[in-house]
Amino acid sequence: MIWMIIIGMAVVTLIPRIIPAFIVDFVDFPNWVNKWLEAIPYAALGALIFPGIITVVPEQPLIGIVAGIVAIMCAWFRLHIMVVVLSAIATVFVLTL
């Protein structure tokens, strides 16, 4: 039974992932669609960051926000992405002590 669920989950996850590979070779998108597709990563990053980040510590949304600001500052000053990640982790850790 659990294996049926797993296989079903795998199929419905797989299909949306792979279909675009077969579309793009056969259609030539107009310029505005190309621009839209180029903007998708920035839009997706926005939607993935917020409001998700405020749920890191469920009852204390502020902690997520503060960690986010720390990450923004680290990234703004061109610190390596690992440093950005570790600083955010350290921030949450300290604030939940």
Partner: peptide, 28 residues
């Protein structure tokens, strides 16, 4: 918080290069 921080770390350099990108992310 690691993955959220990674997403931020990926977004900020692009925003620095082209400020208007932030409008896309904030809209989303």
């Amino acid at each position: 918080v690691a993955l959220y921080a990674m997403f931020i770390g990926l977004l900020i350099p692009s925003v620095k290069k082209q400020h208007k990108i932030i409008l896309i992310s904030v809209t989303a």
